[in-house]
Design a protein around this nucleic acid. Structure first.
Length: 758
DNA sequence: TGGCCGTGACTTTTT
DNA sequence: GTCACGGCCA
């Protein structure tokens, strides 16, 4: 193919071709759903290589490992690695790219190369500690809210100092203190969080001319996928690398911007033109994915957004099926109907792997799983991090992380007494005090446990044994090579006693835990550093036309660090695997960039989509609408949208209102069916609810169910009479006279009050 | 010290 | 309905 690069353009539309063959200067590709965005990027890479640009000068950035992997694969198909100038292509996620830069220049950022990347759970515990030690004890400051404020700041590249300088009111002053304490803890543990990866890379590029010019020199061509979801930090990083040569090629769709809450700035794509004068703009409006009714329905919906660039969408694939809008009685009914629909599609000859079920919140998956399981329909849930959040896996990872980064006291604290070895809170406290008093890292105190005062003989012996194991493993890491990684992981699992601890019983859970531990060893065996990690160590000399074919040997310690990094940066999408022959269940967010023959969206109700937490402002509402749009446009041939007339949330059942988005879809594209719980009930089920509830849909339902005078029963307080009901924010407070204990105020939504019928 | 149990708190989306 | 934490008992 490469002998004649123009062949790369043959089966493309003129617009696609223009994008692919764009050579120098900034370019913005506005790519509607299904318009061949990935195709354009991969062809373009091949085109550049075919036109004499060495692949190692090309940097392609994505948001998920899955997208990066697919891009690599598809480029391989177009231009095999054996072709001259093809080696060294750098395709990576933003976060992995940044992690690598930080690893290479760790010392300049005050880090050790073995730094840990903190997971959400680690972040929370660090923030908790920060809040506690900053004396912010009054309960109003939750770690979650502080972390989100800190994350916002970091995404805007505000360091502690910058944030502090601007903090003027009580709230921001408080955040500033929590932020400062939090960063101190991260530094002490030689750790960074997700946002730091971006922030520190941006700082590295800003403050170190040599690093910046090296990257600028090497990466003459920068391509970015899903540009609408970049935040300010990512913009600065990309801009800083691409500014020297100006070859910044971005692809995205403002209508699919769904990460505003995470700091993504649609302004990056909307203002691209003015940021980069001379930008070539190419709009891809033809949809190759979906049939007419699906495209029409989605286009009708998104046209309700006021803040957008108008864009025509069209398809040549014919009208196809109308979008089915199916109303169900409740979430169980919805789940059963879903299973039935999937079964029908399968009976029609469609493969389960070509079907996906999308929902707004993860909590919805449970009832769907139950139903699919009992219907015998194979399914997988796309939750990339779920595996690594299991306790037995977290334990092993804490060992590994602690070994990779001896300063990581969060990890060390987790494992000192796991499996239980008689090292309790007191012992850990004394070790900590000893470390503090002598200005030592905690790990040092552990290895010198004999010097610590006040410990019992048993504790000294246990800690000593633990310390010896750690030192032994650590020296194995330093002396080993990368091929030993799976063996090493297995060794730690066994010798630490974690294996014995989990072998305990015979139940399904125990079996599963052991299987998971084995799975982790497999993951280590499958782990390979991304190809680009192997190539450039020193060989990345921008003047060398071709990189060495020699792969630099990697030590076991480096391999472990790479493995832990890949574990820290998995996304939900990364575990989506079409080859499993199963229906994929995932959130709407995780579905971005994917496509399926049959797509079902469930829970299309007010409060869920749009989500209650985003109904305050017009901006948030528009993002919810885009989210709905993203979901709908994942479907190639059949789109099924479902509602439940009543839904139990946190154990409380209430009537729902269909999503307002549904009424924004032009009716000619819709085929509405299903039961109307308020109409006649001869459609196969009977109404099983209290008439009081049915009369009052929505959140009023619960309050109206317990008017003053209602006799109720509470699981703890026994029988009582409702005295009054008053709204309290989004919930209702009830004052109840309990016969046994007197008057109490309860939140209706949480108290499990039962109406007692007399 | 460790494990169990009860209570209370909370519940969007994620690299 | 789920999880985390604190208190209590062995």
């Amino acid at each position: 193919m490469l002998e004649d690069p123009t062949k790369l353009l043959e089966d493309l539309t003129p617009e696609q071709g223009a994008a692919v063959s764009h050579l120098d200067g900034p370019a913005l590709v506005l790519a509607g759903p299904g318009s061949g965005k990935t195709r354009v990027i991969t062809r373009r890479i091949a085109w550049l290589v075919g036109n004499g640009i060495p692949a190692w000068q090309i940097l392609a950035l994505t948001f998920t490992n899955k997208a990066a992997g697919e891009m690599r694969e598809r480029v391989d198909e177009l231009v095999p690695e054996t072709v001259a100038g093809r080696r060294g292509l750098f395709v990576s996620t933003f976060h992995a790219f940044c992690a690598r830069q930080i690893r290479m220049h760790a010392e300049r950022l005050g880090l050790d190369a073995g730094f840990s990347i903190y997971s959400t759970a680690d972040q929370r515990s660090a923030m908790k500690e920060s809040i506690a030690s900053s004396g912010l004890e009054s309960g109003n400051w939750t770690p979650a809210s502080m972390l989100s404020a800190v994350s916002d700041a970091k995404n805007k590249l505000q360091t502690v100092e910058a944030y502090d300088a601007e903090a003027s009111d009580f709230y921001t002053r408080t955040v500033a203190r929590a932020y400062a304490g939090y960063q101190k803890i991260l530094a002490r543990n030689n750790a960074v969080d997700f946002d730091d990866l971006l922030l520190k890379t941006a700082a590295l590029l800003r403050d170190h001319d040599d690093v910046r010019s090296e990257l600028q020199e090497r990466f003459r061509y920068v391509l970015i996928d899903e540009y609408q979801d970049t935040n300010h930090a990512q913009f600065v990083i990309a801009d800083s690398i691409a500014s020297a040569h100006g070859n910044l090629f971005v692809v995205g769709d403002p209508d699919q911007s769904i990460y505003g809450w995470r700091g993504a700035d649609v302004g990056n794509i909307l203002d691209f033109e003015s940021q980069y004068p001379g930008t070539s703009i190419i709009a891809l409006g033809r949809n190759f994915r979906s049939t007419g009714h699906i495209v029409g329905a989605a286009a009708g919906l998104i046209s309700n957004n006021r803040r957008r660039k108008h864009k025509e969408l069209h398809t040549d694939l014919g009208d196809g099926e109308q979008v089915s809008l199916l109303h169900c009685r409740d979430e169980r009914h919805e789940a059963e109907q879903l299973a039935e629909q999937l079964r029908t599609a399968s009976d029609e000859g469609r493969d389960y792997r070509d079907m996906a079920v999308l929902y707004r919140v993860n909590a919805l998956s449970r009832v769907l799983e139950d139903s699919l399981r009992s219907a015998g329909i194979p399914y997988v849930i796309a939750r990339g991090t779920a595996f690594f959040e299991r306790k037995e896996i977290k334990d092993v990872l804490a060992y590994l992380r602690s070994l990779a980064n001896l300063s990581d006291e969060v990890a060390l604290g987790r494992i000192m007494n796991v499996p239980a070895r008689g090292v309790g809170k007191k012992t850990i406290e004394r070790l900590g005090r000893f470390a503090m008093q002598n200005g030592l890292p905690l790990f040092e105190a552990v290895t010198r446990v004999a010097e610590v005062d006040g410990l019992g003989a048993r504790a000294v012996r246990s800690v000593g044994t633990f310390a010896n194991s750690m030192l032994r493993w650590r020296s194995a890491l330093e002396n080993g090579h990368d091929g030993q990684l799976p063996g090493f992981v297995a060794q730690v699992i066994t010798e630490s006693g974690l294996e014995a601890m989990n072998i305990g019983g015979e139940g399904d859970e125990e079996q599963e835990r052991i299987a998971n531990l084995n799975e982790l060893v497999n993951a280590a065996a499958e782990f390979q550093p991304a190809p680009e990690q192997l190539v450039t160590e020193g060989g990345g000399d921008p003047d060398s036309p071709e990189l060495d074919d020699v792969e630099v040997p990697i030590t076991l310690l480096d391999a472990l660090r790479g493995f832990l990094e890949s574990v820290a940066l998995v996304s939900d999408q990364d575990v989506v695997d079409e080859s499993r022959g199963a229906v994929t269940l995932m959130t709407l967010h995780a579905a971005k960039g994917l496509e399926y023959e049959v797509v079902a969206m469930v829970g299309l109700e007010e409060g869920l989509l749009p989500h209650a937490r985003s109904q305050e402002g017009e901006l948030e509402l528009e993002e919810e609408r885009r989210l709905c749009y993203v979901g709908m446009t994942r479907a190639r041939r059949r789109l099924l949208m479902m509602t439940a007339a009543s839904r139990a949330v946190r154990g409380v059942r209430s009537m729902t209102v269909p999503s307002s988005f549904l009424s924004e879809i032009p009716t000619e594209h819709l085929l509405e069916s299903g039961s109307d719980p308020f109409g006649d009930a001869n459609d196969g089920y009977t109404i099983e609810y209290d008439p009081d509830v049915v009369d009052e849909p929505g959140e009023l339902g619960l309050a109206s169910r317990f008017p003053a005078g209602t006799v109720v029963r509470h699981p703890q307080f026994g029988m009582g009479t409702v005295r009054s009901i008053s709204p309290r924010g989004s919930v209702s407070a009830a004052r109840v006279d309990f016969h046994a204990i007197g008057t109490k105020t309860l939140i209706l939504e949480y108290a499990r009050l039962e109406r007692v019928v007399d």
